[in-house]
Design a protein around this nucleic acid. Sequence first.
DNA 1: AAAGATTGACGGATCAATCTTC
DNA 2: GAAGATTGATCCGTCAATCTTT
Lengths: 159, 159
Amino acid sequence: MVLVGEELTELEMAAWRPFIMTATRVIAALDADMKKHFDISHFDHGLLVVLEDQPAQQARMGDIARVMRVDPSNVTYRVRRLEGLGLVKRAPCATDRRVTYARLTRRGKRLLGEAWPVHRRGIRRYFLDHVAPDQLREIADAFNRIMEADPTLTPATQL
Amino acid sequence: MVLVGEELTELEMAAWRPFIMTATRVIAALDADMKKHFDISHFDHGLLVVLEDQPAQQARMGDIARVMRVDPSNVTYRVRRLEGLGLVKRAPCATDRRVTYARLTRRGKRLLGEAWPVHRRGIRRYFLDHVAPDQLREIADAFNRIMEADPTLTPATQL
DNA sequence: AAAGATTGACGGATCAATCTTC
DNA sequence: GAAGATTGATCCGTCAATCTTT
């Protein structure tokens, strides 16, 4: 008898399929909202939020890449564009001249303030509005456990 | 008094943040698995599955685009690549010469057979393994409701 | 004119290679 | 030599424009 992984049960399929389809769709919808209203992607918005959550509203390029799980070159590219929009400013590090900081500008902070109501409305419409409070608790519990199971998945506020 | 959208509650935040972070991560991990083992993206795999689920294991290019919620030009591009890999074959429609079918080849069907254990293992490791059966039921229920709320979100098996 | 599909152009994401500083 | 960041090459995704058929 050959050792094989087991098939998914009906219940497992019933949970997996709606989850993955919803996730794909919600991300796409939030991305479209940010592009339409603020000319930035969902990823750009996430990057600005990472900066906002930092003590001096700045972070090293490499740390941003690690937190957001993307290639450093991608951060270089996105920050260059955000700098062109005046939302972020590059700043050299005084003690280690290899390091470059990306700092949130006043204008970047203002954009985040304007974007939050739009983002929040999306979160509600595409997700929260359809879930009962009891289920919110179950989802919070379950997905927190999934995150904890992967030590490389760190909240954006912890660099 | 100004009318504004309400802030998210603690519970809503506690559900939303782990959900969106998990979703982002799981999709990236499944994509990496497919690329590593089979030289196709998660999206390519999904496209092959759509074909597999159809009666004659074929579908019109435009229908694929609608079901997968992407631009038709993207389907043209992906199918061209998959055809180069011998996983899919284009075929003209006899009754309407505007239409092109994409048909799953024997080789494409074989790849799906080999990919499923890998994909299934990923679904387990990145998601199902960390969720209790009771919570699977809650998730199935909640996310099905979210899907039903958007009539444009149709299961891939229904063209 | 409208539907179906493709093409070309352009911005976005990733990888290897490079450059500078430690 | 290793860390930090950038550059260039390449592939992927999207949009407008195009071509053919209905």
